[in-house]
């Protein structure tokens, strides 16, 4: 059975007098246990909204419809009590900015141990410490004793993210949701955290849900790539390189990556802008920016077919159409 099953999930944000914003539109997805997926797309396409709906951590002005089944139970229908038993236990989460995610006035010790106490009801000080130290070691922290007693501001960014990971994994969840886990870190530290995630994924047989705008990172960590555009999934496939992808948007994302092998170091962007998320239109949302846009694209909205939402997809294995 799939560990996560998402059925026609939509999330709207109320904008007061400015109407509603459709951040997620009819997302359908199935993830098997131990499988890892990466959610990629430009800023604002709904990646974080997707990550938060997995454990119903949505903003107060949001409205979610559809189903998010974790181990067959619908998270969106759960009460706060029931959610507490899911969060941290079935799915742990790490965030973009570890410095802001750790509470500044509590020590690392307190922040790890409160999670263990809350879920596993462990209260024995010695056992708590053993567990905490073990987690810190597992996440590759060198001076475990010092870090254990430290406050967040006394740690480096890399250490903070490792501590966050230790907390997220403290109750052995099978799912790890990582929302841009390396974006706030500098390059060398990024590489270390990526290596850590890779190792943990293997050792703990985790189902990793990686949220990123960095296609490289996605390809590096996950076999299955979910590409989102304007709140929709536009491609869902096993992708290793550009030629594996079929959607013109995915190809465009590949084109803008600075390739080390090529002599092209300047950053480029996909021309045009992401459409307004406030309207529902009977057309392809990407068509204004699409190199392959044709007649059909402005006449009706494409549906997901064979893992791609496009009337004129590229053929797998070929660079040009």
């Amino acid at each position: 059975m799939s560990i996560i099953e998402i059925k026609s999930l939509s999330v709207d944000y109320a904008l007061g007098q400015n109407g509603v914003l459709h951040a997620l539109r009819n997302v359908n997805l199935e993830v098997n246990a131990g499988e890892s997926i990466a959610i990629v797309g430009e800023s604002g396409c709904g990646k974080s909204t997707f990550a938060s709906s997995l454990v119903k951590l949505l903003a107060l002005n949001s409205k979610a419809a559809g189903q998010v089944l974790i181990d067959g139970n619908d998270v969106l229908a759960m009460t706060n009590r029931e959610l507490e038993a899911i969060r941290g236990v079935k799915a742990g989460t790490i965030f973009q900015d570890p410095a802001a995610s750790l509470n500044p006035v509590f020590s690392v010790k307190e922040q790890i141990e409160e999670t263990i106490t809350a879920h596993l009801k462990v209260r024995d000080k010695v056992e708590l410490k053993q567990r905490a130290i073990k987690l810190l070691e597992e996440t590759g922290i060198k001076e475990t004793q010092r870090v254990y007693e430290a406050y967040p501001h006394q740690l480096s960014g890399g250490q903070q993210q490792r501590v966050m990971t230790a907390i997220a994994l403290s109750c052995s969840p099978k799912i790890l949701i990582a929302d841009e886990p390396t974006t706030a870190l500098d390059v060398t530290v990024q590489a270390q955290i990526i290596a850590l995630l890779k190792r943990l994924k293997k050792e703990r047989n985790l189902t990793l849900i990686l949220i990123t705008h960095d296609l490289h990172l996605a390809l590096d960590l996950c076999a299955r790539i979910i590409v989102m555009y304007a709140g929709e999934v536009v491609e869902d496939a096993e992708i290793k390189s550009e030629t594996d992808s079929k959607h013109p948007y995915t190809r465009a994302l590949f084109e803008i990556i600075p390739d080390i092998n090529e002599d092209r170091h300047e950053f480029s962007v996909i021309p045009g802008e992401v459409p307004e998320l406030k309207t529902v239109m009977n057309e392809c949302y990407f068509r204004n920016r699409c190199v392959k846009a044709g007649k059909k694209c402005s006449e009706s909205h494409p549906e997901m077919e064979n893992g791609v939402r496009c009337f004129y997809p590229y053929t797998k294995g070929r660079l040009k159409a």
Partner: peptide, 17 residues
């Protein structure tokens, strides 16, 4: 509304705490 509060919810701590 701070990120650490969102993170605390994500940890599954009881709301009162």
């Amino acid at each position: 509304t701070q990120q650490y509060t969102i993170a605390a919810y994500a940890k599954g701590l009881p709301e009162n705490r």
